[in-house]
Simulated assay, not measured.
Amino acid sequence: MDTSSDQYDSPWKDAIERYFPEFMSFYFPDAYHEIDWSKEHIFLDQELRAVVQDADLGKRFVDRLVRVSLLSGDASWIYIHVEVQGTKQAEFAERMVVYNYRLFDRYKRPVASLAVRVDELRQWKPTSYGHSY
């Protein structure tokens, strides 16, 4: 087990869980305004682990899965997958797509995948993932 990454991960995990509304307001204000904060939001770490445990897509720093209710009531509730990425990684965009699909496939609920980059590489800007033939 890599304790150095645990020391880095734990503060992020704790902060996201303890201050989730504030976290969303600061990093994702548009999404924040779509969430019904009068209803409970639920962290689903076990469910996330079950979906990503066999993915061999590189080191991730922090992943959180949260069930939230929407103000619109369209889907009544959705999952928000939050990832904090601390290093440049070629597989990053692919991993986000894979996790999004696996969560949707397993739970049949909409999934919003959100990423916070905390690296210092201004030139690295993963924006999409796809295939072309």
Rank of each mutant, 00 (worst) to 15 (best):
E34L: 14
I42G: 12
V52A: 07
W77G: 01
F43P: 05
E47R: 08
I80V: 14
I35S: 02
R60E: 11
F28S: 01
E22P: 01
S69E: 05
W77E: 02
Y19E: 11
E47V: 06
V52M: 07
A75V: 14
Y27I: 10
Y32P: 07
A50K: 04
G58E: 07
R18K: 08
G58I: 12
R49P: 02
L57Q: 02
D6I: 15
W12V: 02
L44D: 06
F23S: 01
S25Y: 06
F43S: 10
W77D: 03
R64M: 12
R60Q: 08
H81C: 00
Y8W: 15
Q53I: 11
S25E: 07
A31T: 15
P11I: 04
E40M: 03
I78N: 06
F28C: 09
H33R: 15
L48K: 02
A15L: 13
G58R: 05
F26I: 10
W37I: 04
S76Y: 12
W77L: 03
K59D: 13
E22N: 07
S38E: 15
R49L: 09
V62H: 05
D63H: 13
D30K: 11
I16E: 00
K13A: 12
E22R: 07
S10P: 11
I35M: 05
Y32K: 06
E83R: 00
M24N: 00
P11R: 05
V52F: 12
H33K: 09
P21H: 10
D54M: 09
I35K: 00
Y79A: 07
W12T: 01
Y79V: 06
Y27A: 09
A55S: 11
Y8R: 06
R64H: 08
F23G: 00
E47H: 10
Y79D: 00
D63Q: 05
V82M: 01
F28E: 01
Y32W: 11
I78W: 02
D56Q: 13
L48H: 03
F43K: 02
Q46H: 15
F28R: 01
F20L: 07
S38K: 13
E47D: 14
V62L: 10
I80M: 14
D63E: 09
S69D: 15
G73W: 00
Y32N: 04
D56C: 10
R64L: 09
G58K: 06
F26T: 06
R67W: 11
L65W: 12
A55F: 14
V52R: 08
K59W: 15
F43N: 00
S69G: 06
F26L: 07
F20H: 02
E47A: 12
V62N: 05
R67T: 09
R18G: 10
S25N: 10
H33M: 14
E40W: 02
E17H: 08
I80H: 06
V66T: 08
Y19A: 08
M24V: 04
V84M: 01
R67C: 15
I35P: 00
E40S: 14
G58H: 08
D14N: 07
S25A: 15
L48Q: 03
H41K: 03
F23V: 03
